[in-house]
Amino acid sequence: MGLLARPKLLPFSKQGTAPVWSSRTLTTTRPLRQTGPRYASEPQPEKPINFYKTHGRAFFKAITLAFLTYQIAYWAWLTLETEDIMDQKKREIKSLESEVRLLDDSRKSHRPAT
């Protein structure tokens, strides 16, 4: 009766100080297949929705800031461009007015006195 549950005594360990006990049983049946993942450390494939749940706010914030930065830069460029065009037009008007005055003065000076 004592032979059924008795563990085997294996040779001494590499250090040679303590015996190693084994309670391994020998069976001829295969273990059942598990339906879970093969390895505990293998990550599950991520679904796209998980990405947006995790990073959605940061992504939205980055896109919004980029859009606002673009709008501010565009508005500043448009304002400077408008000021430049208006300055060119004012200079052109002044030169044309001075040309008209010169032509008017020369016309008045060549007019015969009556």
Rank of each mutant, 00 (worst) to 15 (best):
M1C: 02
M1F: 03
L3S: 04
L3W: 07
L4P: 02
A5I: 03
P7R: 02
K8F: 09
K8P: 00
P11H: 05
S13A: 10
Q15A: 07
Q15R: 03
G16K: 02
G16M: 01
T17L: 06
T17K: 06
W21F: 14
S23T: 04
R30Q: 14
T35P: 15
T35I: 11
G36Q: 05
P37Y: 07
R38E: 08
A40F: 14
P43M: 01
P43D: 02
P45G: 08
K47H: 15
I49S: 12
F51D: 12
T54M: 07
R57H: 07
R57A: 11
A58L: 10
A58G: 03
F59H: 04
T64A: 09
T64D: 06
L68E: 12
L68D: 03
I72G: 05
I72D: 03
A73P: 01
Y74W: 11
L78I: 12
L78K: 15
T79R: 15
T79L: 15
K90P: 00
S95W: 03
L96E: 08
S98V: 02
S98F: 05
E99L: 03
R101K: 14
R101E: 09
L103N: 03
L103R: 08
L103W: 04
D105P: 00
R107D: 04
S109L: 13
P112C: 02
